[in-house]
């Protein structure tokens, strides 16, 4: 029974990966524009299966409008702040083993030390992770995932990919998400003891927590954007790049200079692809 459940989950994940690769190959057939400006925009977007992604995005937004957002709003408006913060901290603490594995895989010993001491401190002094005393002491939470690890190892992100329900991603980060769920001890334990409700419940609460935190943010973003799909795509990429750099990098991010004298630099970061 146990092994059957595990096999089923494994099959599902393998199926997901295959479907993903198939989609990407299909998408690869889309034509590259002739006009140099359009071509630059095409490479900058790095989104060969855009029509498919947009369809999934519409689907996600529909689901969000009738389902996720209203529930998240109720959660935000009825559950007291302190309890919601506690749940948020608890979920973060539960991710510690996966974060630690990725710290180590990235060769980030300093990060690993922070992860371990946060986990110990918050589990004991934070009442099982509901408090974040480590954060108050200056050891701030910093998530790591296998998508970031692959990036640190030198793997490119690949084309943009909008996943149903899970949202913006790319082949690298989507594979990373699968790996993270496979190496998660909580999920493993639940699998092995036939407690499948636990990982599912965790995903639901996590989603609720995340969505409730960004209600106003996303509303504001949508109001000011000309094309919300593109705004999300751009933000996703830049935020991931920032997470891979671990944010506090000492070097300023190399943005293209905004310069009238050096006209070439106006062409932007991917101009070399067009030439």
């Amino acid at each position: 029974m146990i092994s059957r459940t595990k096999k089923y989950l494994g099959d599902m994940k393998a199926g997901f990966a295959i479907a993903l690769i198939g989609l990407l190959m299909l998408g690869g057939c889309a034509g590259v524009p002739e006009d140099p400006a359009d071509r630059e925009a095409y490479y900058e977007a790095n989104d060969p299966i855009e029509p498919f992604n947009r369809a999934v995005f519409s689907f996600n937004r529909g689901l969000d409008a009738v389902f996720f957002k209203p529930i998240a709003a109720i959660y935000r408006d009825t559950v007291p702040d302190a309890l919601r913060d506690g749940i948020h901290n608890f979920l973060n603490n539960l991710k510690s083993p996966v974060i630690l594995a990725n710290n180590l895989l990235q060769g980030d010993l300093q990060g690993a030390k922070v992860t371990v001491s946060r986990f110990a401190t918050n589990t004991v002094a934070g009442f099982g992770g509901f408090g974040d005393p480590a954060g108050d002491l200056g050891a701030k939470y910093r998530g790591e995932d296998f998508g970031q690890t692959l990036a640190v190892w030198g793997l490119g992100e690949g084309p943009y990919l909008m996943l149903p329900i899970f949202g913006p991603s790319n082949p690298r980060d989507a594979s990373g998400m699968v790996v993270d769920s496979l190496i998660d001890p909580v999920t493993m334990w639940a699998d092995n003891t036939d407690r499948n409700a636990i990982p599912i419940g965790r995903i639901i609460v996590r989603g609720l927590d995340e969505r409730s935190r960004f209600i106003k943010t996303l509303d504001d973003l949508e109001k000011s954007s000309l094309d919300f799909y593109v705004t999300i795509r751009s933000l996703y990429r830049q935020l991931r790049a920032d997470a891979i750099r671990n944010g506090a990098s000492d070097d300023p991010i190399p943005t293209p200079s905004i310069s009238l004298e050096e006209d070439e630099s106006l062409l932007g970061p991917r101009a070399e692809l067009v030439k």
């Binding site: 935020l239 991010i253 943005t255």
Partner: peptide
């Protein structure tokens, strides 16, 4: 880490 110029640029060109 999110550049306002780059975000706007991608949107306009789209």
């Amino acid at each position: 880490g999110v550049s306002m110029s780059i975000t706007q640029r991608e949107e306009f060109s789209a």
